[in-house]
Structure formats: C-alpha cells, structure tokens
Write a protein that binds this DNA or RNA. Structure first.
Lengths: 187, 187, 187, 187
DNA sequence: AATGAATGAGAGTTCATTCAT
DNA sequence: GATGAATGAACTCTCATTCAT
C-alpha cells in the first residue's frame, strides 16, 4: 500500500473511532505510521484530506452499486442486485457507512463538496426514475420512493453498527431487501 | 427566555449552521447575547453543554411522540398519531433533526451519553413490541420493523432539509405515513 | 504601560536584537511578560503587529521632525531644527532607526505598507521643495538634494550604532548638521 | 554557469523579490533549476549559503571599486574613479545593492560575519585616510567624511530602486559624484 | 450573576535538513 | 553528483477555560 492510501485509511479509522471533532494530524500521522510533514506532501490541508476521502468513498460506493445494474434488465432484478451490493459493501465496510453519515451531517466542514452530498443517492434515483416511467413502481413521489428504498437500509445499518442486529446473517439481509422491495413495487 | 435557554438555543442554531467542528464559545456567547464567562455559570464545559442540549432534544421529542399514544387504543391509530407527531415536530424544528443526526455520528463527543443514542427509537420500539405480541404487524424481526417505520422518515427529512421535497404539504406527509404503515402492517 | 504598548516595545527590542528573521511569538510573549494568546488579542497576526509598529515609528518620527518646522521661518533655521530633531530622536532611539532600516529592506514582509516606505522622507522633501521654489538651495535635482541632506545622517547613524563614532557628542552632531547644510545650500 | 553559481544567483534574486524572511530552500531549488538536496552538496546550511553570497558580493564590489584606484594618482581622480565604479556597479546590479542593505540590517542572521559588515566601506576609508594625511580633504572626523562620501550614494540608490530617480542618466550620476566630492574636498 | 482580558496547551502547518536511491 | 520523499522540530495561531473585577 502506498503512502497516500495509508493516510486515507488511517483517516477513515480515526474519524470513526474518535470523530471529526477529535481527529488531529499528529495522531493521524502515528496511525498511518508516518510523520506529520508527510501528510502534507499528499494533501494540502486537513480539510482537503477529509474531502478527498469522502469523494473516494462515494465514488467507490456508487461504482459498486452500479455493478448491480444492467441496461434492459427487469427493474426488480436491478433493484435487488444494486441494493444487495450496497448492503454488502456497507456490512463489509461499516466504517465507510459511518464516515458518510458523519460527513453528511457536518455542515461547513466541506464547503466545496456541498453539492456532492447527495451523490450517494444517484444510482437509486436513476433506477427509480426509469421504473416510474414504465409504471413498475407505486404511484408515489420520486423522493418518497427513494426514501422507502434507502431509508430502511440506513436504519438497519445504524442498528447493526451498535450491535442491535446482525445483518451479516443472510436471512436478515434478504428480509431487509424484500421489505424495501415491497415498499416500492406494485403489489 | 432565561439565560440558560438562550445558551441552548444559540448552541442549536450555531451547530446547525457551522457544525460541531466549528462551534466555539466566543461565537456562541455572541449569538446568545452574553459573555463567554456566563456560559460557564450554567454549564461546566463545552461537552457538558452539548450533551445537555442533546438530552433535552431527545426528551422533548419523545414526550411529543408519546402524546400520540393511548393505552388500549388500536395499534394503527397509535402508530399514525405518534409518527405524525414525530414528523410534525421535525418539520417545525428541522434544526433539532439535524442536531440529532450530527450528534449520533460524532463518536466520542459524548462519551457519557453513548447509551442514550438510541433513546430516540424507544417510543416506536415500544409500540412495535406491543403490536408484535398481538400479531398486528408483519412477522419480521423487531429491528427491521423499526427500520421500516422510522428509516423512510429520516430519509424524507434529509431530502426536505436540502430542499428536494416539501414535507410541509399535507399530502406529502400523509403519503409518507401511509407508506410506512404499509411496510409494517399485515395487509 | 498598557499591554499593547508592552507588546510593541518588546517587538522593537527583539527585532533589533535578533532580526525579523528570528523573531518568534513565544519569545516575544516572554519578553513582553505576557502569554502568546494575549498578543493576538491586540494584533491579528505577526505581520499586522510588525506593520503597526512600523507605522507608529514613522508617525512619531515625522511628528518630531516637523516640530522643528515653522511656517514662514528662514529655510536655514527650519533645516537645522528639523535635522537636529531627527538626529536627536535617532540617537536616543537607535532601535527605532535600526527597525526602520530593517523594515525598508525586507521586501514583501509588508505588502500593505509598501507605499509608506518613503514616508520617512516626507518632511525633508517638503522643505527642500519650498526652498527650491525660492532658490535657496543649489540648482540640483530634488532627489539629489534629499539624498545629500539625509544620506550622511543615515551613514553616520550606521557608524554610531556599530560604535565607530560618538554622535552623542555635541560637536560631532553639529559638524554633521553643518556639513549637510553646506551640501545643499547656496554658498 | 556551474551549479554553485546558479544557486547563488537564484538566492540573490529570491532574497530581493521576497526577502530573507520568505526565502525557502524548495523555492530556491526550483529557481536554480535543481533539487533541494543538491543545494546541500554545495552549502552546509541556509545560513552558510547566505553568508557566502554576502562575502562574494562584498568581495566583488570592493575589487571593482579598487580598480578605480591608482597609487600615487591625485586624490580627486581616485575619488571620482572609485565612486563612479561603485555607482555603476550598483546601477547595473541593483539586486546586489538591495541584498547588502538587507543583510546589514538583519542582526544575527550572520553571526559569523558581523565583523565584515563594514568591509563595504574599506576602499573609501582607505583613500579618505590617505587624503586626510595630505590635507586634501576638509578638516572633519574621518567617519563624517566617509558618511558624506558614501551616504548620498546610498540615498540616491534607494530612490533609484523605487523609481524616484533615474541614475542611469549620465547627468544624474555626474551631479551626484560632483556633489559628494564638494562635500569632502577643500574648496 | 455577569464580565471579558488573560491564559497556555494544543491545534494545523511549514520548512531546513537528511539519506536511500 | 543529483534527487526528492520523508522527517519532526518549531512555527503561527486558536480557543476552552479561568478569575479578578
């Protein structure tokens, strides 16, 4: 692993352990196994570092979700594949899920990426729009369909992270997927 | 309004405008119209202040939600009343919603209140449990039923806050409530 | 003496002992008998502090020199009084003389005061111009007359500071004044 | 041009553009078209580099001034030749003039070269002493004669550098020389 | 109860210097 | 000879907290 990746990885770990508020460059350098000055060879500032990490996480997440999408395939199959990818990715990288949530709710930490805050919803928005055009989903506002698809997943992830549920069990995950599907699909 | 309330109100406003990360006591004092020293007459530390504000917000929220609950009344009616109260409270106090979300995802800002982070879900957990005992909800894990009830509301609130939807319209709100209800109730 | 003046005084002393290059805020706070943070209650940045000190020194110098000026009085008398004031002020405050010279030759330390760098010559420029109009000085370019009036004083101050001459002796000072006068006046 | 000279040249340029205070090795390497490490092959430290540059500049300046000196020749002719050489050198290398002035007023940047700070005055001191012995200059203290000879030149150079006068014009230069001569010579 | 000047530890950042390549 | 990534001490500046008034 190269130095830049080591820094990003250490940042992700520390932000999740201590939060944005308590992240400091000295501790970060120690966690990454480098010296403070080295961080600044790769990132111009703490803010830039956080923002770049966020962009990377969103980019990776969206790429993984979109791997579940196939042009022309039935909406149902696309929905399940994409959502399953999302859940799997979150379960395997709960720190990424937490980071996204922290980031989203830290106003003005990320002035420059304000507009990207909703990028996380783009893939789901895309298929909901397509399905809506073809009358394959309930006759509800798009935003509501998105909230019904993605909201319960976020909710379950929160419970998973605090140990209230075990999403790693296949059954739990499939029940979640099926329930989200029922919420938006025409019965 | 007394001084203590003025401080709490100013804190809520500034945290939502600038985030925990950029909140500072001098600015806070200015916002509250008092001097920095005065804050310390009412709160022992910045952390204590934040924690107390959080507890107040959760306490108020739960009290309002529980006003929609009546012992012995049909589950459906309790569900709608409580959830409607929750949504109304959030819509009228979006800063409180944002604060809760920020707080929840700032690990170790609130060491002492870690266990209270899920308190927000207590009222809904309560009626889901009762309904489950009486087989009035789908045969799904409790946690999933909670995620299905509350997750879409959080999702819609996020979209509302960034201006993507207008939850203030009665129709939008009722559609959301109905959809959440459909997710958990036996058809 | 108030805090702000103590900071300015300490700055002047340290800049002259160690130079701009080695001035640091920790040492400065110690010299002024206060803490680092206190400096920032009075000056927004190190640069602002240096600039303000410079402006004060120039302002004071010019005020003192101009005390030797009287409207309508013979050029010769004005010249001697003003120049004597300048020399006396420098002799009694050699640190101010050194500071001005350091400042003048530190490009870009003082972006904002660039245009004030020549303010030090304003009083002398003023009387040279007047004298020129009335043909009381040699027929030479203004700039040369200024250089002839002020240059030897700067030169002697440099020698005084390194201990090569004793300008405090009345004779030395009067010889310097007389020589400058001879340089510019019509014989 | 070899590497060492390239470094010295780059240093001179950057010190004059940004000042000692803002000179840094990375920028210096870029300006010289080499890498930071290479600087340290030729100079042990930043301080040593600055000091060596200073010594070179003084050495060159004195050599050029002394070219105007001829044993046994009339004082007046030596004075004019030497001073003309000095002025010409400064006019053609204003950066060297500025560097000398910056250096002179940066105490303790050059601990080791403190004693050399007046070396710049050696050639003029030399001929003034000779002339004094032979009663060819006014009966004034040596230091004052030096200040009268050299002070106005420094003064005019400062005005030249900020664009207030055009020393490149032959007339200006000759008037300056003549005026300095008048200041020290027996009428 | 209220103030706000003062504190100083600690933050983010810089940069002269080193050394493996 | 030449490189430039890496270092970490030291820098400027911030800000939660204190306390004399």
């Amino acid at each position: 692993m190269n130095t830049k990746e080591a820094i990003l990885k250490a940042t992700l770990r520390l932000v999740n352990e201590y939060g944005f508020y308590h992240l400091n460059m000295k501790q970060l350098a120690a966690e990454a196994g480098i010296s403070v000055g080295t961080i600044y060879l790769y990132f111009n500032s703490k803010e830039k570092l956080i923002n770049e990490l966020y962009k990377n996480i969103i980019r990776d997440f969206n790429a993984i979700v979109l791997k579940g999408y196939e042009e022309g395939r039935a909406f149902k199959q696309n929905f399940f594949e994409m959502m399953r990818n999302a859940i799997d990715h979150y379960i395997q990288n709960p720190d990424r899920f937490s980071f996204i949530e922290q980031y989203t709710y830290s106003p003005f930490l990320f002035k420059e990426t304000k507009e990207e805050n909703l990028a996380i919803l783009e893939p789901i928005e895309k298929i909901i729009k397509e399905a809506k055009k073809e009358n394959q989903v309930k006759d509800l506002p798009e935003t509501l369909l998105i909230a019904l698809s993605y909201g319960p997943i976020v909710g379950m992830m929160k419970l998973f992270i605090v140990g209230k549920t075990d999403l790693k069990k296949k059954m739990q995950k499939e029940l979640l997927l099926e329930a989200c599907w029922q919420s938006v699909s025409i019965q």
